[in-house]
């Protein structure tokens, strides 16, 4: 057990916040509060702060609505991961959660489609989906991905790791430039 080593690693990687567990409504509020005070303390620009906030909310709500439990025996445990860190150029928001393997192709298509678009096309696509999509309480991952891509202004980085026949692990990294 070397907490100091782990502490130093977190320092070196500029980790602002690291969370593993179930994303609940209270956690969402709390994470936003923590971020608000940390970004205020760092005297981060209002525009960058708003972008981070917006993307963070979207990421957490994806975890809240779409994270699958790790195994069938423990349906109630929907563990997910959320991390925020930075370097000289960017803030990074990363999320990780289990999804059904059957959903991988559709999600992959969605992200790739969004990643293939430039600013103006994203905007057109956003308007189209906003207007045409059926209202769902879960918000619809489509609009969420488009919104994150628009606000980030960068390509979304993602990866899928197959866990077993039923489950895969979905990793997402969203970047926000500091000089926004």
């Amino acid at each position: 057990m070397n907490v100091y080593t782990r502490f130093k690693a977190m320092m070196d990687n500029h980790i602002i916040l690291s969370f593993k567990g179930e994303i609940t409504s209270d956690i969402v509020t709390m994470v936003l509060q923590i971020m608000e005070s940390k970004l205020d303390a760092a005297q981060e620009k209002g525009t960058v702060k708003k972008k981070i906030f917006n993307i963070l909310v979207e990421c957490m709500q994806n975890l809240y609505h779409h994270a699958e439990p790790e195994n069938e025996q423990e349906r109630s445990i929907r563990s997910a991961m959320l991390e925020l860190f930075f370097d000289n150029e960017f803030y990074y928001i990363t999320t990780g959660n289990f999804i059904k393997s059957a959903e991988v192709p559709r999600l992959k298509d969605r992200i790739e489609r969004v990643n293939a678009m430039e600013k103006d096309d994203l905007r057109k696509y956003y308007r189209e989906i906003l207007d045409n999509n059926i209202i769902s309480n879960k918000g619809g991952a489509d609009l969420g991905m488009i919104d994150m891509a628009r606000k980030s202004g960068q390509k979304l980085e993602f990866e899928f790791n197959e866990v077993n026949e039923i489950l895969s692990f979905f990793s997402l990294k969203v970047k926000i430039a500091k000089n926004n």
Partner: peptide, 10 residues
């Protein structure tokens, strides 16, 4: 100030 995408539909 800001809103999530599921609010944007409403």
């Amino acid at each position: 100030e800001y809103f999530n995408t599921s609010s944007s539909k409403y």
